[in-house]
Design a protein around this nucleic acid. Structure first.
Lengths: 253, 253
DNA sequence: CGCCCTTTTGAAGAAAATCAAGGGCAGTGG
DNA sequence: CCACTGCCCTTGATTTTCTTCAAAAGGGCG
């Protein structure tokens, strides 16, 4: 099933996508132990499929979203703009990740979401999702779990913000674990569609310093990175080095 | 009503508290437009009142909480411990703030919560709260809103982590806005029970540097701080200086 | 090929940590 | 009543980390 997601995202990204089968959408959501009744509830939602070009807008700060989103293929980012115009990325959305809470609670976005790569997404109207969440405890808990994880990631990013090298290592470990969970990494190798500049925006480092930290990780024999392809040389060693414990990602595993 | 909360917290903190009237608990939750039916639902929950001493544990990383908490009086903090033993505070809980998502989703805490000052709290069993959330859309949305706000705060903390002076200013503005909302601030003056060391743990600064930033704010004529009492000299100027926009706190106002 | 974007490296400067030492103040105990 | 103690705030000097500025080198693509 995990491999299916991978193949499917590739297919979608090639632009061949019409409406993907609804069963597929449920796979992306990765809700454990979903009953047939709840699965039917989710299938019955008015999902729509869409596409955003690289760097395209998904949600802008200030607007009140009418739709909740789930990424099917590609990467997106949440970010906030500082008064001087620089950006801080506050989270990455990978295939299967959802963006829904402002829509469901009908509140204004306090940050923006945009596509890092070209993205295929599926979206559902805020009111329909609200009803689904309110009518099924299982669906409610599944979406809550996604918030739990996002919040935990934010906390780790904050915690790590003392030491640039460990921070970068932890970031790589996070993306490795998340990529593994959706079948987008094999062993200790992963591909990420981020420039060092974008990684810097996420870690609050300049591109220059991010580059130096990559070099430092390479020279320590921990991580090799080349053109978006990252090889973790010794996973246990890197985990120890940066204090990474995958528990906080609360993955179904 | 806001003033009532203030008086009540004082009373509780003096240790005079038994079980506070249930109507009081609902006031603390600050749920707008609560119907009588939903109010009754919340009143029917098995709330218990408790007390933690200064620095006492509320929830520890690794445990799966059986209860959701709401602070009635005093301040608590969420924090995560680094491998070298230093702490990063990732959030403060003020009276009226809740701590529930790990309980409701039955997941292990990925961080700890402990009392900054002596705290009075009320707690409710995870299963009871889960049922309430699943049986009332209004209650569900009210708790979701609390997550929305906490997450927004985390994002701003991340965004601000470039400039220590602005970061401290923004932090003060945040606490000012939150204190105002619960009647714990008057005009531009607020009292916070935090040492500069604890503020440093929250901003990822050393106590020494936090102190220098306080001095710098004072010398710029923006903020005066003395023994936990903070006076914002010119609120608009401080807001402009650090790019504070209270929108992200999504307060009932 | 030439262009743009990204990566890489160097050198200088700014920001924050670290190290070290006093000072104020509240609580405690003689 | 006063000395002592512990905690917190404050300041100075030094070192480390990260940014800024600048320039060159790779790499994909029309």
């Amino acid at each position: 099933m995990i491999h299916m997601i991978h193949v499917e995202s590739a297919r979608l990204c090639l632009g061949l996508a019409g409406m993907p089968p609804l069963s597929q959408i449920i796979d992306f959501l990765r809700i454990p132990d979903l009953s047939e009744k709840d699965a039917a509830l989710i299938r019955a939602l008015p999902w729509e499929v869409g596409h955003v070009k690289k760097s395209g807008k998904i949600l802008a700060a200030g607007e009140t979203p009418d739709f909740a989103f789930m990424i099917l293929a590609g990467w997106a980012a949440r970010y906030d703009v500082r008064r001087d115009g620089t950006r801080r990325v506050t989270g990455f959305l990978l295939p299967g990740d959802v963006c829904w809470i402002h829509a469901v609670t009908a509140t204004k976005m306090d940050h923006s979401v945009s596509a890092i790569t070209a993205c295929d997404y599926t979206r559902v109207s805020a009111s329909a999702l609200r009803e689904a969440i309110n009518s099924s405890a299982k669906v409610n808990m599944a979406f809550l779990r996604s918030k739990l994880i996002e919040e935990a990631i934010l906390r780790k990013w904050l915690r790590n913000s003392l030491d640039a090298k460990r921070s970068l290592a932890h970031f790589i470990c996070e993306l490795h674990a998340r990529s593994l969970a959706i079948g987008h990494a094999e062993g200790n190798t992963l591909e990420i569609p981020l420039t060092q500049d974008q990684i810097g925006d996420a870690l609050s480092l300049t591109a220059v310093h991010t580059n130096r930290m990559f070099r430092s990780l390479r020279e320590s024999g921990l991580v090799n990175a080349k053109g978006g392809k990252i090889i973790i040389m010794d996973l246990d060693a890197v985990h120890r080095f940066c204090g990474f414990n995958p528990l906080y990602l609360h993955q179904a595993s």
